[in-house]
Design a protein around this nucleic acid. Structure first.
Lengths: 192, 192
DNA sequence: TTATAAAAAATGAACGTTCATTCATTAGAA
DNA sequence: TTCTAATGAATGAACGTTCATTTTTTATAA
């Protein structure tokens, strides 16, 4: 028990350190030596927990992606009305992107650069299935426009990445009122 | 005349090479030696045209951003009706993002990572002013929702980045019909 | 035009540094 | 004592950049 916890401890510290360094300085300025130092560990120790740097990055990506997906579907269940279900998921994602800033920023970076191995990136996509199912239902009920999942995603979830980036740069937080308006725009974009 | 052209030639070749390597393998796997080789030039030659690697990347960013902005406002003029003006600009941007794939992919990467110096990144933003002015007009005429420029951008232009990425990964091209539907969604998101 | 000198552009090898990774050794728990 | 986790110094490869030299272009004079 204790042993397991300790292992997780250092592993987590390493993942956290990597997240911070890659976010703030980019992959190319996040050397293993600095990651180790920030995690309070010797460089060689990294290799007890990860095969190499690429494995470290891939693991971080999958870890963060999993936490994101878990967040996205909190309180959601199949069978809810389409708009209600969509609202729940959308606000969950908004909360994650606008509060867990470091994690969300890192995901943005991974999705827009080739730093993650392709196979790993694809694995990260599978978590969104419930949302895709919901959209399918919405299309059948003619509540949602007959658009591909890609386009629906592009106009509802993806804009949140931009709002996150803006929020970070301007050091201001999107308040509840703005968030409601943003949701309305997302819904207007895809509703029939 | 000839001299000027030749200089531009090598500089252009270097920028092109950088664009390709950074796009396909990321900044950290785009060493100066490879950039030089791909441009058909000796490594030392790069330093005749650019101060260092950072300057090379910054220059590339500004060059591409300028070409993007030029494209965005082709055929647009002040005084057009808001929806018409927005349509022209939106389709221009869509054309750019979906056809000039390399350039657009590179811009995405720059906007989501810290590889560009902050001051340079801010300079790249100034080009969009006519669109911001148009939105201001739209808000005054109560055609466009009273949302900040950030949100309007997030729901109209930004989604195109996602569609670009998808198009790249799936090797399919968004046809005209899909493009029209995408425009409709963008407009639905922000119109009153 | 041709020959030659001066200037500019381009080069490839070399430099110092930084990096990811390894390994012999040590510290600590069982 | 035995075994595992952790270490810090060591290593070789790769990197960005520099520099002495060569090649190409331009300018000048015959």
């Amino acid at each position: 028990m204790e042993k397991k916890e300790k292992i997780t401890d250092k592993k987590t510290a390493l993942l956290d350190a990597t997240l911070n360094l890659v976010n703030n300085h980019g992959f190319h300025k996040a050397p293993m030596s600095k990651i180790a130092k920030l995690a309070g560990v010797a460089p060689a120790t990294i290799y007890l927990y990860f095969e190499n740097k690429q494995d470290l990055i891939n693991s971080l990506y999958l870890t963060v992606k999993a936490s994101f997906s878990e967040h996205a579907f909190k309180g959601y269940e199949d069978g809810l009305p389409v708009k209600k279900g969509f609202e729940i998921i959308w606000y969950n994602i908004a909360d994650y992107k606008l509060n867990k800033i470091d994690e969300a920023t890192f995901l943005s970076q991974c999705d827009n650069t080739p730093i993650i191995d392709e196979a790993v990136a694809e694995e990260g996509l599978k978590h969104l299935q419930p949302l895709l199912d919901l959209w399918e239902k919405g299309r059948k009920e003619e509540i949602v426009k007959p658009l591909s999942n890609y386009i629906l995603y592009a106009y509802t979830v993806y804009p949140l990445s931009f709002l996150l980036a803006i929020q970070e740069k301007n050091y201001y937080k999107l308040n509840d009122e703005m968030r409601q308006k943003a949701f309305q725009s997302a819904w207007d974009a895809i509703k029939i």
